[in-house]
Nucleic acid binder design. Structure first.
Lengths: 193, 193, 193, 193
DNA sequence: GATGAATGAGCCTTCATTCAT
DNA sequence: GATGAATGAAGGCTCATTCAT
C-alpha cells in the first residue's frame, strides 16, 4: 500500500492558490488546478471530497498560518500600543511575503464560498488580538465604541493597502506601514487634549 | 427596426446582480441570468457583446449611480470636515439602501474581472472627493501622508462595516455612522496638541 | 426562433434502442447515443431532462406502440379463443418485426430502471386483454385461478420464445406460433373430459 | 505464500449480488462492490481477472447452485409427471429462498453480458431435466413439438411468477405453485379425450 | 495476499454562444 | 428586435485498473 503523499497535498494547495489568483474562481477548473499541481484530476479527490472542499480547506489553511504569523512575538502582557503595532506590522509583513495567499483569501471572503466558513472558528485563531483590544478599552486607552468599528479600523486599512488588486499605487515599506499605523491608532485611541 | 427595450435592459441589470449575489460568479450562467430576467439567452446578446461585457457594464452602472448618490448635496466650497462627513453618510446610506448593488461590486472588485476596469475612469466619478481631501491637506487640516493611506481610512471602513458578508454584527444607524466617522476623522486629521 | 425538430426526436429514440441493444445500458453513454443520432450531446438535453428520462420515455413509447399493434383487429365481442389467439399472433408479429424494440424493453424491465415505471399506466394500455380473460373466466372457458397465473401463461412464453437473447434455437413462423398458442390455450382453458 | 481467503471470495460474491440488485449493473462500480465486501478494490483483482470476470463467475456460481437445488431428490427413473413437478417445486423454492440470487441472474440474462456465457455448459447442468422431457415425448405423454416450446412452458412461467420485479401481485405458496404446475402440465401433456 | 494511493479515460451535464425563424 | 433550438467545448466527478508497499 502506498502512503498519502504530503508533497501532492502541498502541490494542490499551491496550485489552487496560483490558479485562482491568475484566472479567478470562475475559470479555475479542477482539471487546470490538477494539471498545475502535476497530478491527475482523480488524485485531487483522494485529498478532497470535492472542488468546494479543496477551496475551503485552502482558505482555512491560509487563515491558520496567517494567524500564527500575525501573533509572532506577541505576549499577552504587552503594552496595548506596542501589541497592536506588532500585530499590524506582522500582518503587513505576511501579506507582502505571501501576496498570493492574501489575494486568494480576499477573493474568497467576497464571494459566496465565504458562507461555508465557520466564522467563529476562524476568529478564534485571533482571540489574543480581541482580548488586547478589550483590555485597551477597559484601560481607557481605546475608545469605548462598538467593537466592530474598532476592529474595522485596525484591519480594513491593512487589507486595503496591502491588496494590489484594489490599491496599486501604494508602496508597502517600513515607513509607510508605521505611518499608516499611526492613523489607525489615532482613530481608535482616546484623545486627551 | 424596433427600438431596444429599456425594460429588458433593466431586467438584465437586476437579474445579473441578483444571480451573482445569490450563487456567485462561478455558477451564474448566461442561461440562468436570462431566465431570471425573463428573456431569452439570445436576447441578452442583443444588449451585450458577451457575458463579460454584461458583468462589466453592470459594475460600471452601479459605480456611476453610486458616485452620483455619494456626492448628493455636496458643494465644492464646503468645509472639509462637513464635506467628508456628508459623503461618508451618503455612502452608508447608499450601501444600506442597495445592499445588493454593493455586494455585487465588492465581489467584482475582488476577482479578476476587476482588471478589465479602467480605474481612472471610475475614479474620475469621485474626483470632487479627491479634490476636497487635497484641499484639506493643503490647509493642514489633514495629515500630509501618502494619498492612498488617507483614502483607505475614509473608504475601507465603510466597505467593511456596510458589508454584511464580512461584518454581520454591526448595525448601520445614524449614531453608529457618526461615531465611525469620528474615528475616520481622528485618523486623518492633524492633532494640534 | 427555430422549432423543435421531430426528426431529431425520432433519431434519438432509434439511437437509444440501437446502442442499448448493441452494447447494453452499462456502456451506452449519452455521448455515444447522441453520436449515433447525429446530434450533439447537448441537444439531447433539449428533448430529455436527463439520461434516465431518455431511457424511460423510450421504454414508454415502445410499450405504447406495442399495445396498439397487439390490439390491432381486436373487437370486444370476439370469441375468447379467437381474441386471445389474435393478440398472441399480433404480439409475435410485433416482436419479430421490431426485435430491437423488444430487446430493449426486456433489458429495461429486468433492471432497476423498471422501478421508475408506473406499472398501472402501462397495464392500462392492455386493459382489453385483461377484460377478455376475465370474460373467459366468467364463461367458464378459462380456469378460475389467480389472474397472474393465467396472465403469465399467456405472456411469458411469448417473451421467452420471441427473445433471441434467451432462446436462439426457435424459429418464429406461423406454424410454430400456432402450436405454441395451443399449448397456452391448453394451459389456461377448462378441460371438460 | 498465504492461501486465498475463502471468506473474502464469498464476501465478494454476496456484495456483487447485493449491489447489482440494489443499484443495477450501470451503477455497480468495482469500488462500491469492494467497499460492500469490506475489501480493497485491489484485492478484488486477486480473485478476479477484471470486473466482467467477477460478474460472469458470480452468475455461473448461482446457476450451478440453482441446478443442484433444482435436481434435489430427483431420480432418473421417476415418473415424468412426478419428476417435472418435483423440479418445478424445487425451482420455486430456490427462487423464494434466494430472491437476490434470482434477481441477479434475471438481470444478467437480459443484458449483453449474457453473450459471454457458454450456454451449452449451463444447460448441461440441467441435462437430467431435458432427458426426462425427451423421455416423456417418446412415451407420448408429452406433446411432440419443438423442444423450445415445451421448455419455455416449463420454465418461463416460473421465472415470471417468482420474479418480484415483474410480478408483484402473486403470492408464492404451495397451493399456487401446484396450481401453476397443473397449467404447465396441461400445456405440454397429450390430451387423450 | 492484501491494500490504499494513484491515474487517464470517460461519465453526465451545462456552458457561452450562434442559428434560423 | 426577439426567441427557443442547437452545439462543441468544457465543467466536476467517478471509473476500472495498476502501482508500490
Amino acid at each position: 500500500m502506498r502512503i498519502k503523499d504530503e508533497e501532492k497535498q502541498q502541490a494542490l494547495f499551491e496550485a489552487t492558490i496560483k490558479m485562482v489568483n491568475e484566472i479567478g474562481f470562475v475559470k479555475s477548473s479542477v482539471a487546470k488546478i490538477a494539471a498545475e499541481a502535476k497530478v491527475s484530476p482523480a488524485t485531487l479527490y483522494i485529498y478532497h471530497k470535492n472542488k468546494v472542499d479543496l477551496l475551503v480547506s485552502t482558505y482555512l489553511q491560509i487563515k491558520k498560518s496567517l494567524s500564527i504569523e500575525a501573533l509572532k512575538g506577541f505576549q499577552s502582557d504587552m503594552d496595548v500600543y506596542e501589541g497592536l503595532k506588532l500585530i499590524w506590522k506582522n500582518l503587513f509583513h505576511y501579506f507582502s511575503k505571501h501576496t498570493d495567499y492574501f489575494q486568494f483569501t480576499e477573493q474568497f471572503s467576497n464571494c459566496p464560498y465565504a458562507k461555508l466558513i465557520n466564522r467563529e472558528e476562524v476568529d478564534s485563531y485571533f482571540s489574543p488580538v480581541f482580548e488586547l483590544i478589550q483590555y485597551g478599552i477597559d484601560q481607557k486607552l481605546i475608545k469605548n465604541v462598538d467593537f466592530e468599528i474598532l476592529h474595522c479600523f485596525l484591519v480594513a486599512p491593512i487589507l486595503h493597502l496591502a491588496n494590489p488588486t484594489i490599491c496599486n499605487n501604494f508602496t508597502v515599506n517600513n515607513e509607510n506601514v508605521d505611518i499608516a499605523f499611526d492613523l489607525a491608532w489615532d482613530a481608535i485611541s482616546y484623545r486627551n487634549n
